[in-house]
Design a binder for these strands. Structure first.
Lengths: 340, 340
DNA sequence: TTGTACGCGTTATCAA
DNA sequence: TTGATAACGCGTACAA
């Protein structure tokens, strides 16, 4: 692809390159009719201003990097959509990388992005200790970073988070209010901040409603459907099936439901299920799954705006924006009326 | 973010910038010990070669654009993963844009990407007539483009496609072999090439197995779960429920299953369901859904490799690579043995 | 209102 | 083995 340059346009018209440049940048004085002539010839020649040369002068890449653990599930895909909505409108391009839940890859991705001179970074971190230190170092060296998702509340820095504690509490209380007595929580890796916060919300509900310790349990299952199916199968085989299950996310909940169906345990008659971070599957599941919607697109957009403020206005005070969710109550957790 | 430049390194050491440059580009002669000195000082200063300046000289952006209809469903997300695997390893960055099934947006995305001087384009087109002409024009102007997915077989140009006809035929034959007599096909927009090809495979199966015309029907439902649910509900209300349903994709199949459950029609006893373009939900559905896996990651990787050959070796002969799938037979289409 | 000339950070050519 | 210098394409003081 051979590109037409500003010189080609200038030569063709017998004007200087500065005039051509001015025709493309409104802020300078230029005779309207020469501008029109230039624009028309430029169009005819198929001239596009070379963004690379412009970036070299302006000392900014107009590239923003975003690192997500994955984007196969719709949550991070939606976050990316929100990020792009804001940034593309401002002339930025978004470089997306996946860490695949692997801390080494997360760090390598950061280096790749920094080698590409991105103007800033949105990181949806795995929240592994060493990497958090690494990010802190980058911030201290002047790299604008906004975190989104699994970042500890105590972390000093700009971040977009979801109020996991509160909504986990709500979801659990919904189960309690439906009259379920024994409630287990299928959690994720205990190290993940998201696991910790949802667990804390669950435990708060237990405390608040004075559920005896013998009636609840926390099981570190994982984040996948396979993990949910396995953990639930083990409970069934140990004959330790509670009346309700609050799962850390929808895939785990769907896996649990599959295991229960295999053993002909009825939902919600025998056991109630609640998921979290609602996926499009929730309303299509059998029975339709109660879950918590997270405003992923809005969170992504918010992260992008916060980052832009840092980059363009040097606004650098750490800021935390907390988002609320929505509990979508469906059949999987609606206790049927026993007798009337 | 103030960047350390090659000059800073040179000044600090009292050497010329050319020496620093040589230290970072193995192909030149340089005394090993000065190279070591330079590298160590560069590291200490936190110097990174500015990729933007490099791109300006090399006359390539090392950016590749990819346009997908969406990446909320996992198919295109996986395609992107395959594309990135190949391209990032070669030092490229991938700019991802969504057309949202909107031809205008597809064209605008292309312009944005071209304005950014991408070295090439991978397009997963909506396959709208005017835009195909537009892409043809770009190709004739020297823009390297590889298409993936919904592109007509007759289109002259490099493309990665899935053998929809063949696998649609297989899936339908699987239903016929299970003994289902009346089979409907929930299709998508009749204009889409994917709709046409899957429909053609379905019809071929009807012809091959001499199914009378009164026993089959093609319904243009759409591509979403809502579309599948609606179309199926209408069939139920018209009391026109077939013995089997071959759906254009998994969301449509899952929507259909939801409608059937609402009316207490049993799957697969009363009706069999087969989906397509398998999603992670297929094995988790109730009952587990028969579907066709498409090798999305491999298709993406293949598109990237084909594009690289065009860009780096000027290899320009239109090439079509066709991928095969896998029919995953599950409970939703397995006719129970009636009496034994 | 327009043109000249410098510089952004790098690579590559030539001379030393 | 090194250093000086001309590009790459553009924006922008400064001069005209």
């Amino acid at each position: 692809m051979k590109h037409v340059t500003i010189k080609d346009v200038a030569r063709k018209l017998g004007v200087s390159i500065s005039s051509v440049s001015r025709a493309f940048n409104d802020k300078y004085d230029i005779k309207p009719e020469t501008k029109a002539r230039i624009l028309s010839v430029a169009d005819e020649l198929g001239y596009r201003p070379n963004p690379i040369a412009k970036k070299l002068i302006k000392q900014q890449s107009l590239n923003i990097g975003i690192i997500v653990p994955e984007f196969i599930n719709d949550f991070y895909a939606r976050v990316i959509i929100g990020v792009q909505q804001v940034l593309i409108a401002k002339g930025y391009q978004v470089l997306i990388m996946q860490s695949d839940e692997n801390p080494d890859l997360e760090r390598n991705n950061t280096k790749t992005l920094l080698d590409n001179f991105v103007d800033g970074l949105i990181v949806c971190p795995i929240n592994e200790h060493d990497n958090i230190l690494y990010f802190k170092k980058q911030i201290s060296q002047g790299v604008p970073i906004v975190f989104l998702g699994r970042i500890s509340a105590g972390f000093i820095g700009s971040k977009i988070i979801f109020d996991d504690y509160k909504w986990s509490l709500f979801a659990t209380e919904h189960l309690i209010n439906q009259g379920y007595q024994t409630i287990y929580h299928l959690s994720g890796d205990p190290q993940f901040s998201v696991s910790k916060k949802r667990k804390a919300g669950f435990l708060k509900a237990m405390e608040k409603h004075k559920i005896p310790e013998s009636n609840y349990k926390i099981i570190a299952a994982g984040l996948t459907a396979e993990a949910g199916e396995l953990a639930t199968t083990q409970l069934i085989q140990k004959e330790d099936v509670p009346e309700a299950l609050f799962c850390i996310n929808d895939p785990v909940a769907l896996g649990a439901m599959k295991a229960l169906r295999t053993y002909h345990i009825n939902i919600p008659q025998d056991i109630a299920i609640v998921g979290c971070t609602e996926t499009p599957m929730a309303p299509l599941a059998y029975p339709p799954l109660t879950s918590i919607t997270q405003p992923a697109v809005e969170m992504g957009a918010s992260a992008a705006e916060l980052l832009l403020r840092q980059i363009e206005h040097g606004f650098n005070t750490p800021q935390t924006i907390t988002f609320d969710g929505l509990l979508n109550i469906r059949e999987s957790s609606t206790r049927p009326i026993v007798n009337s």
